[in-house]
Measured scan of single mutants.
Amino acid sequence: DEIHIHFNGVTIEFRGLTEEAKKALEEAIKRGASEEELKELARRLIK
């Protein structure tokens, strides 16, 4: 299970995320999180 985020022309790929983690990332994107914020969020979620 993986998710691809297209962000300002950059694709960020995450693997092994739970549904909750995906929802958290989607919410962050909707509120306009920066690419760095998304990566940091993903790091926290994957652990």
Rank of each mutant, 00 (worst) to 15 (best):
R43S: 13
R43T: 14
I12C: 03
E36K: 07
L45D: 02
E2K: 14
A28V: 08
I29S: 03
E37H: 06
G32M: 05
K47P: 13
A28D: 02
E37R: 03
H4E: 04
I3L: 13
G9L: 00
F7S: 04
E40Q: 06
A42I: 13
E37K: 04
G32I: 04
E19V: 09
I29R: 01
E26R: 11
L17N: 01
V10S: 08
E35T: 07
A28G: 04
N8F: 04
N8H: 06
T11N: 02
L38C: 03
T18P: 11
R43P: 05
E35V: 14
T18S: 11
K22R: 07
K47F: 07
L25M: 07
K23V: 12
I3D: 09
E40M: 05
I5H: 02
E27R: 08
R31Y: 13
S34Y: 06
A24H: 11
E40H: 06
F7H: 04
R15K: 15
K47S: 13
F7G: 02
E19Q: 07
G16E: 14
I29N: 02
F14A: 11
E19K: 07
R43N: 14
H6G: 02
I29L: 10
K23A: 12
F7A: 05
L17M: 07
N8A: 05
I5Q: 01
E36F: 05
E19D: 08
G9H: 01
I46S: 10
I29W: 11
K47H: 11
S34Q: 07
G16L: 03
I5M: 05
A24C: 06
L25R: 00
E40T: 05
T11D: 08
E2I: 15
N8I: 02
F7Q: 03
E13Q: 05
E2Q: 12
N8K: 02
R43F: 08
E37Q: 08
V10A: 05
L41G: 00
L41N: 00
K30G: 10
E40Y: 03
H4L: 08
N8G: 11
H4A: 02
A21D: 14
G16F: 08
R43W: 06
A42C: 05
I29F: 09
K22D: 01
G9Y: 01
I46H: 06
R15S: 15
E26D: 11
E19C: 05
E40C: 04
A33G: 06
S34P: 05
K39Q: 12
E19W: 04
F7R: 08
R31H: 09
R31V: 09
I12T: 01
R43D: 14
E26Y: 14
H6D: 07
A21L: 07
S34T: 12
E35G: 11
E13L: 03
H6F: 03
I46T: 10
L17D: 01
G9V: 00
R44I: 13
R44N: 11
E40I: 06
A42K: 00
H6M: 03
I5K: 01
E13I: 15
E2C: 15
E36A: 11
L38V: 06
A21G: 13
K22E: 04
V10W: 00
G9A: 00
R15Y: 15
A28F: 10
K30T: 12
E2H: 15
I5D: 01
A21W: 09
A28E: 07
L17T: 01
R15F: 15
L38T: 01
T18I: 04
E20R: 05
T18L: 03
H6W: 03
K22G: 05
R31N: 10
K23N: 11
E35W: 14
E20Q: 10
L25G: 00
D1T: 08
T11S: 03
K30V: 12
S34G: 11
L45N: 03
K30D: 09
L41S: 00
E36R: 08
L38G: 00
V10I: 13
E27Q: 11
A28C: 08
F14W: 03
L45K: 01
K39E: 09
D1N: 12
L17Q: 02
E13S: 10
S34V: 05
E40P: 00
H4F: 06
D1E: 11
E27L: 11
A24V: 13
K23S: 10
I3T: 12
E20M: 06
K47D: 15
E19S: 10
S34F: 06
A24Q: 12
K23M: 10
L38P: 00
E35Q: 08
A28T: 04
I12V: 06
E36Q: 11
I29P: 00
L17I: 08
H6T: 02
A42G: 05
I12F: 00
E37A: 08
T18M: 03
I5V: 08
K47I: 14
I5E: 01
N8S: 02
L25H: 00
R15P: 15
E27D: 11
T11W: 05
K30L: 08
D1K: 08
E27T: 11
H4G: 01
E2Y: 15
V10C: 14
R44Y: 06
E2D: 12
E36L: 07
E27I: 08
K30H: 10
